[in-house]
């Protein structure tokens, strides 16, 4: 494959599905609340940064484990060269894109909220409030990825499928690139919070732009599936 084909058929789709995962809100919401809770508990700057870092590490480890697991499954079953499997994955990505546009946020009189069942969201709120140690925040980071698996699974499967067709260092690089891009907003926010940015200022921006983020994620998923259908499959 020449460089141009490599970029257009492999690296660009991986980067885009990683951006899709990065645009989902739950991990960011938990990180924002965790930062607020940590500062409210008189945590020193170093402890606050450790909490943020362990949260991101948890999120990245689970993302890596899931992508590696899926890629391994594609390789072992021989699906990594199967065009029909790729078409099925692309169509599920497109369906998930519409699902994100329609269901990712619910609109009720109390305001716009994530798709999570309310009782579940309350438990998550309580768990975040209790996450005062690095191990708990690590688990919380991993849990945040697993909780959004309903939406994240589809971009993740595309990344795993593409990565499974690679070999050697490109395979590892593709998976690491995916995990790093997916965690980029969390890393940026953790640095911002640690440097003294106000939690409420960032939360306000997110509140005002949540519709934009939802539409971006949904449209990216649909556009990518059309692109993959046209140029790659």
């Amino acid at each position: 494959m020449d460089t141009n084909t490599l970029v257009m058929a492999l690296w660009l789709p991986i980067a885009i599905v990683a951006i899709v995962q990065a645009s989902f809100s739950l991990s960011i919401s938990i990180l924002t609340l965790l930062s607020g809770v940590s500062l409210a508990n008189h945590r020193a700057k170093r402890g606050h940064s450790a909490l943020m870092a362990s949260y991101i590490a948890g999120s990245m480890v689970v993302t890596l484990a899931l992508v590696v697991g899926l890629a391994w499954m594609f390789k072992v079953t021989g699906w990594s060269d199967n065009n029909f499997v790729f078409l099925v994955l692309i169509s599920t990505l497109m369906t998930a894109g519409f699902a994100v546009l329609l269901f990712y946020y619910r609109y009720d009189p109390k305001g716009t909220r994530l798709w999570l069942p309310r009782r579940f969201a309350e438990r998550l709120y309580a768990a975040t409030k209790r996450a005062s140690s690095v191990d708990r925040s690590f688990l919380l980071g991993g849990m945040a990825v697993l909780l959004e698996i309903v939406f994240i699974a589809f971009p993740m499967m595309i990344a795993a499928y593409i990565a499974s067709s690679m070999s050697g260092s490109s395979y590892y690089l593709a998976i690491i690139v995916y995990a790093v891009i997916a965690a980029t907003p969390q890393i940026a926010l953790a640095i911002a919070y640690s440097r003294g940015y106000k939690v409420s200022a960032i939360q306000r921006w997110r509140e005002q732009n949540k519709r934009f983020l939802q539409i971006t994620a949904g449209i990216l998923m649909i556009t990518l599936s059309i692109y993959l259908l046209t140029y790659v499959a």
């Binding site: 739950l26 919401s29 938990i30 924002t32 609340l33 607020g36 109390k110 305001g111 909220r113 994530l114 999570l116 969201a121 998550l124 709120y125 106000k198 939690v199 409420s200 200022a201 939360q203 306000r204 509140e207």
Partner: peptide, 14 residues
Amino acid sequence: PDAAYFYENEKRMF
């Protein structure tokens, strides 16, 4: 005002 916003909205983050 920033703290007030956080106080009012922290339960509605998810």
